[in-house]
Design a protein around this nucleic acid. Structure first.
Lengths: 115, 115
DNA sequence: ATCATGCTTAGCCATACCGCTAACAAACCA
DNA sequence: TGGTTTGTTAGCGGTATGGCTAAGCATGAT
């Protein structure tokens, strides 16, 4: 059970920006060069590069240069920690609902005993 | 298909901070007052209040005052847009894999035709 | 050899974020 | 009433973020 998990920090932070989500969605369809990635955003290249490095930092994207072109690829397994975290929260929440349920049942039983 | 979805922005941003995730995990176990929520963080109250309002902004938490104590409650349905987004990405990715698969099959067929 | 292409680096600017203290307000408690 | 508990507001300081321009560098095309 991680107390401080910088992985989740980076993941969630990377996804909190619409431009970065747009870039990621594009990359989910297949690899792309930086310029190609930048085009639909309407942003300048240095700006896009920065977004790209945030995505790399989060492990969501890997890149490699081939010639003068940098090719970027989506890494779907990087989303796993997020799914895991969601699942963990869901379990905690449902355990709570179960306890609530037990409690309500107890109340009903008490009422039955009284009658 | 949302182009700019501030909901996702707020959601992911809210979850990008370990303190806020800790608070949320605590609240998943059941409602709590602000002070109770602050205790395990080691942070001052105003700081925690700020985190709390970020969580509220994202819809992840609702609060209400009764007496002088503010009670905070987790809102699990607020996580739905995130699940949806994840699912959307997964679909795009898998569609891509399917296309890749088709392509490989085509290549194999060509090789077979050649032999 | 020259030029165009595709990044890449450096650095500026405005705003947002995350922590804090200090001071105030509104319950509740004795 | 007077004190304690529980928020709440205002505002400060340092850092991070997200945009930009300008200039540099390496590669590919002519």
């Amino acid at each position: 059970m991680a107390k401080h998990d910088p992985t989740l920090d980076h993941l969630f932070h990377a996804l909190s920006d619409p431009t970065r989500r747009m870039m990621l969605t594009r990359l989910a369809r297949g690899p792309a060069a930086v310029t190609e990635l930048a085009a639909p955003t309407g942003l300048r290249l240095p700006t896009v590069m920065r977004h790209l490095s945030v995505l790399e930092e989060a492990g969501l994207v890997t890149t490699q240069k081939d010639g003068r072109v940098r090719s970027c690829a989506f890494q779907p397994q990087a989303l796993a920690p997020m799914r895991d975290w969601l699942e963990e929260q869901r379990k905690i929440w449902e355990a709570r609902l179960d306890r609530l349920d037990d409690y309500v049942m107890t109340l009903m039983k008490d009422r039955t005993d009284e009658s």
